[in-house]
Amino acid sequence: MIRVEALTKDYGARRAVDSLTFHAEPREILGFLGPNGAGKTTTMRILAGYMPPSSGKAQVAGFDVVEQSLEVRRRVGYLPETVPLYTDMTVFDYLKYMGDLRHLPNVEDRVDDVLEIVNLGDRANGYIANLSKGMRQRVGLAQALLHQPEVLILDEPTIGLDPAQIIEVRNLIREIGKERTVLLSTHILSEAQQICDRVLIINKGRIVAEDTPSRLQSRLAGSQKVSLRVAGESDGLDAVVAGVSGVLRAGFNSDGSLEFEAQPGQDVRPDVARAVIHGGYNLLELRPVGFSLEDIFMELTREEPALPQTTEDASEGEAAEEEVDQSDDEAK
């Protein structure tokens, strides 16, 4: 459904997307995960027919995004990052306008249907200017769904929504993903885990990892990060914890709690708890901390592979490449 080969986009001297290659199958939900400025939005804009790439090829629904841009645009539903809406129109008129531009038959019925899907039926005649951010996001989503596109491209679809709405939208996307191809971007790891069939992690315009969410997780689950808090005196606590066998690193956070990482596949928490109490500290809390996306990035873009290597993957190749680069420099 989506086929991207060596896609590159330069903004002047800055390379935003660097020979990206990936694909998405029909009825697959593919997640784009990456920090701001990683090139997610640029890639999605190219795929939605907004701008041509500097080089490389991209096909969406069997059509080339440059040569057959109109055909692509007819088959893609696109929700840009900053939801562009005409605030001086009512929700209904706005959607009808977008539907008219797509030559939809029975536009008005279709608009009623999508308003039902995104749960905005009661605001159809309200002006967009008066809607909350979450509602606007849903209007944008309705716009992307209007023509029942084969491919949905959603740039951070849950940003700005409240928790209840986030769950609603995620369920909606999962539902849509049963029949269509969805490409969505996010920088929330748990979101990617919940919605996506497959995740691409991109950084600085390149793919640094590509896998199913569970496999990506398991690569990290090997080592465990735990936060520990004591009441009162905590001097020397880091040494005590670091002394427990199986603990890799221990250090204080700025808020006074202590964080440590355990060796892969080993739950050291009982031992740590015993050691802490033994040391005369008042243990308040012992809490596992999930690896954040930032941690994954740190791991994936580090020079030497620090993760337990279970599968051959892109990150390994990446890390090895960087090592080679370094030794080259040294040789000179």
Binding site: A48, Y50, P84, Y86
Partner: peptide, 14 residues
């Protein structure tokens, strides 16, 4: 300015 251009340029409009 408002970004609605992105909408028009990704709609099937020449």
């Amino acid at each position: 300015r408002t970004g609605t251009m992105e909408l028009l340029l990704t709609a099937p409009v020449r």
